[in-house]
Amino acid sequence: MKKNNSRKLDLYVYLVVLICVFIMFMGTFLSYYVKTNKEKNKNIIHNSVLMALTFNGKEQVNINNIKPGWNDKLEFSVTNYSSDTIGKYKIVLEIITPLSNMVDEFFVYSVESTCDNKDTTNSLINSSDTVIPVVSKELNGGVITPNTTHNYVINFKLNKNNKKYNNTLFSARVRVEEDK
């Protein structure tokens, strides 16, 4: 009887050892699989977008004692100097000194743009006459392919009207930021 029990115990031990070996094989296989997958993930591609905002002339619009009919413009370009990476950017219309604390329906801006590359991936920022805000505003959506230049003109104008603008100042500039 005791011999039978001992045999049973031995059988249990063999069974446990067998299961252990099986599980260890599984563990080793899974560990190897994890390792190879981690190695797959090690392919890190580091792209860099090199863009430049270029002003050819003034960088800021300033007007003292504005009168209806006034207009001015800012001209600049955005160039992607990268050879292989598409860049995304936004134009920030920075209002340094607003015309007043409230928007004026006659005081508008528009954005005209041209591109030297016909690749349709390029996306330019355009805007018809829009009321100039009293605080800075982001104009999103610029996408520029490698070795491409986007040319911009932002027109500012105070449409003719009968309102009085006594000693009113206005000052604004643009900057370009990456659009994530």
Binding site: I45, N47, L50, L53, T54, F55, G57, Y89
Partner: peptide
């Protein structure tokens, strides 16, 4: 592949 894109934005101003 993991693609990391870094941005460098310069400014050139011809006064």
């Amino acid at each position: 592949d993991i693609v990391i894109t870094s941005n460098n934005l310069g400014q050139v101003s011809f006064t």
